[in-house]
């Protein structure tokens, strides 16, 4: 592993002051992702700034929604999360092994990098890791890659389950940077690759996620996370679906459907939401929503299966929130 220095900080202000001016400085908390990236060479950090001591560990539940500190532990065990935001608890449980879940932090989870093997193996070309070097996945083994939101330069998918569930809940990331604080919808945190796949998020260097706000909604309590993967547990999603519905008098008044494993960011299936809204929740409407969710997909040679998988996964996830 490349050598680096190590700094501990005790305030958000101090953390931002340490990292912002130093392009080779990098935050570390759970370390489950950063250490792998520094070890393998995707991140050329000379300095890790440990933010674990910052007072960002609380989980607060109130009438206006949920606030999750960027360093909160075991959010899935919080009684209000389990009762009122089941999609969130389910996505967290599906997210990793018990060991990794004992270590990771919510803020870091959102910023994990793609699992695309052409990004992870530094001997391959990758526009995301090394701008202009090419993309091995376009014509290579792209079984795990994107069917939505990709470009001719990158078809990586974002691997976070948490981000997909948060997107279905209209959640917002709170950040603190050198220019001050701001709020960024989780759905917009990651950029689509376009011609600059190496610009992965909208965050400035040194801008720190301090927490996540999940607004109260009429659909959060009736929600579900379905994750389909190559093995039963501890694997990244081939396709995942977060659904949340507000059903009153037998009719879907409002809903959110977000997909994971298919795009460079959590992917809102707005066509599916439109297809379902105003309809009764039944087999016909579930199937129609699934069809709509898969519309517009651009599959590659090895991931055509994801199109049908999205259709069926959306329908199945919706069946879990039916009466």
């Amino acid at each position: 592993m490349r050598p680096f220095s190590y700094t501990t900080v005790s305030s958000v202000r101090s953390a931002v002051l340490q990292v912002s001016p130093d392009p080779k400085a990098q935050y570390v908390a759970g370390a489950t992702e950063v250490l792998n990236l520094v070890r393998e060479g995707q991140i050329a950090a000379d300095r890790l700034v440990d933010i674990r001591a910052l007072p960002l560990t609380s989980i607060r539940a109130g009438a206006d929604g949920l606030h999750i500190g960027a360093l909160a532990r075991h959010v899935e065990n919080h009684p209000v999360v389990r009762r009122d935001y089941p999609v969130l608890a389910q996505a967290l449980l599906a997210g990793a092994s018990p060991q990794v879940r004992n270590m990771f932090t919510p803020g870091g989870n959102l910023l994990q990098r793609t699992r695309c093997s052409y990004y992870r193996d530094v001997s391959f070309a990758c526009n995301r890791r090394e701008p202009g070097s090419g993309c091995g996945a376009l014509e290579g083994n792209n079984r795990y890659n994107a069917i939505f939101g990709g470009s001719d330069h990158c078809i990586a998918v974002h691997p976070s389950d948490l981000a997909v569930a948060l997107t279905a809940l209209d959640a917002v990331a709170r950040t603190q940077g050198p220019a001050g604080a701001r709020a960024i919808p989780i759905e917009e945190l990651h950029r689509l690759p376009g011609e600059e796949p190496h610009r992965e998020t909208v965050l400035e260097h040194g801008e720190l996620i301090t927490g996540i706000d999940v607004p109260a909604s009429r659909f959060a309590a009736r929600s579900h996370y379905l994750k389909i993967r190559d093995r039963a547990s501890f694997a990244f999603a081939l396709v995942s679906v977060a659904v949340a519905v507000d059903v009153r008098r037998g009719v879907v008044r409002d809903c959110r459907i977000a997909l994971g494993g298919v795009a460079p960011r959590p992917w809102r299936a707005r066509a599916a939401e439109a297809a379902l809204t105003g309809k009764p929740l039944n087999e016909a409407s579930r199937r129609a929503a699934g069809k709509a969710a898969a519309s517009g997909a651009v599959p590659r040679r090895h991931n055509r299966f994801k199109v049908a998988m999205v259709e069926r996964a959306v329908a199945r996830a919706l069946s879990e929130v039916e009466d």
């Binding site: 190590y6 700094t7 501990t8 005790s10 305030s11 001591a53 007072p55 609380s58 539940a61």
Partner: peptide, 29 residues
């Protein structure tokens, strides 16, 4: 660590912060 805040969760956090070892700001080369 800062311990300001209201509500049960914040109080719990404050209690933890009060008992947690103080944080040293330091850099190891």
């Amino acid at each position: 660590a800062a311990t300001v805040g209201a509500g049960v969760a914040a109080q719990a956090e404050a209690a933890r912060a009060a008992t947690a070892p103080p944080v040293r700001e330091e850099t190891l080369a």
